[in-house]
C-alpha cells in the first residue's frame, strides 16, 4: 500500500558541502518499508521544481516514526531540501518501488511488481554492499536489516574525496566498512572496483575455494567468498561492479536512478531496457538483478 502524507522535518544536518542528512517524522505509525525502496518528495516553495523528487530510504526508525534521507545537492530541488528548517512540513508519497532481496527472508519484499527472483545466498559467503556518493544512501538500512537477519554485511563505500564519504560511523554499527577515494584522502586511492578486498575475494573465488583462511582485508574467521553483491551509485560504477560480479558469477543487485515523473508506474517515463522489454524502474525496480538488464558488460 502506497501512502501520501505530510511529514515534519525533525532534523536537517549539512554533512559536507554537497550533502545533507534530512530526517522527517510522521505523525502516525510507519507502514512496512523495505531496504531499497524510495519516496517521492514534493519540494515546498520551489516554483521551478514542478515534479516530485525521488529519494531513497536511507534509514527507518520505527520507534520515532522517522525516515532518514541522504540528499546530494545537485540542483534547485535538492538545494531547497537542504535548506528546510526543523518543524517545516514535507509532502511525501511512500514507500515506492520493490527493494533489495534479503537472503534469508526472500518474501519480505515491497509492493512492486518484482521481476527479480529471490536470491539464493547460501554457502555462507559474505554480503558485499557497494555504494558511491549519494548511492550509499539505501545501503545503511539494507545493512541494518541484513545484520538483524544474522549476516555480517561488508560495506565498500567510494567517493571522490573524504567529503563525499558519508555516515561512516552509522555504517560501522552494522558491518565492516571499507572505503576508497579518488584522491586518496580516505581509505584506498582509486575506485571501489580497485579495492583490495575485491581483488582478494576474486582470487579466492577463482580458486573456487570456501577457504577457512582469512583474506588480508577481512577480519575474523569469516568465509572468503562473496555470496551476493548489492550496489548503488553512478551508472559507470554500477556497471563496473556488475562486470566484476558477472566474471566471478556472484549474484548482484543494482539500484537504478532513472529520471522519474510519477514514481508510481503511471507515466512510463522511467523505463530501463530489460530482458522483459522496457520496464518501469519505479515499480519493477529500482532494484534489479543484473541478469535482468541488457547492459553491455
Amino acid at each position: 500500500m502506497k501512502h501520501i502524507a505530510d511529514w515534519t522535518v525533525s532534523e536537517n544536518k549539512r554533512l559536507s558541502a554537497d550533502f545533507c542528512l534530512l530526517k522527517v517524522r510522521l505523525n502516525d505509525e510507519l507502514p512496512e518499508i523495505v531496504p531499497g525502496q524510495f519516496v517521492q518528495i514534493l519540494v515546498p516553495n520551489a516554483p521551478n521544481t514542478l515534479l516530485r523528487r525521488p529519494i531513497s530510504v536511507h534509514f527507518v526508525d520505527y520507534d520515532t516514526h522517522e525516515l532518514w534521507l541522504l540528499v546530494q545537492l545537485v540542483g534547485a530541488g535538492t538545494k531547497k531540501l537542504s535548506e528546510l528548517k526543523v518543524g517545516e512540513q514535507l509532502n511525501i508519497v511512500f514507500p515506492l518501488g520493490n527493494g533489495f532481496s534479503l537472503p534469508s527472508a526472500p518474501s519480505s519484499r515491497g509492493g512492486g511488481e518484482a521481476i527479480t527472483p529471490p536470491l539464493e545466498a547460501g554457502g555462507g559467503g559474505r554480503l558485499l554492499l557497494i555504494g558511491g556518493g549519494a548511492g550509499t544512501a539505501p545501503l545503511l538500512y539494507l545493512g541494518k536489516q541484513l545484520k538483524e537477519l544474522g549476516h555480517q554485511p561488508l560495506f565498500l563505500l567510494g567517493g571522490r574525496t573524504v567529503n563525499h564519504l558519508l555516515q561512516l560511523a552509522e555504517f560501522e554499527k552494522y558491518g565492516e566498512v571499507h572505503t576508497t577515494t579518488e584522491d586518496g584522502s580516505h581509505g584506498e586511492k582509486g575506485f571501489v572496483t580497485n579495492h583490495t578486498i575485491l581483488q582478494t575475494f576474486a582470487i579466492s573465488s577463482q580458486r573456487g575455494v570456501m577457504s577457512t583462511g582469512t583474506p588480508a582485508a577481512c577480519s575474523g574467521d569469516t568465509p572468503s567468498t562473496i555470496a551476493q553483491i548489492y550496489v548503488c551509485g553512478p551508472k559507470p560504477m554500477m556497471q563496473a561492479v556488475a562486470k566484476y560480479a558477472k566474471q566471478h558469477t556472484i549474484p548482484c543487485e543494482v539500484s537504478l536512478e532513472n529520471k522519474m515523473a510519477c514514481g508510481i508506474g503511471a507515466c512510463l517515463c522511467c523505463v530501463e531496457k530489460t530482458t522483459y522489454g522496457n520496464i518501469c524502474v519505479c515499480t519493477a525496480g529500482p532494484v534489479f538483478n543484473i541478469n535482468q538488464l541488457t547492459w553491455q558488460i
Binding site: 514542478l50 532513472n258 507515466c267 512510463l268 522511467c270 530501463e272 531496457k273 522496457n278
Partner: peptide, 21 residues
Amino acid sequence: GNDYPRMAETPSGMLNAVGLQ
C-alpha cells in the same frame, strides 16, 4: 516505446517522449 531518456522537466512543465509504450 522510445528509448530512455523519455522525460525532461522544463520551466513549469515537462517534455515526454514515451512513444505509446
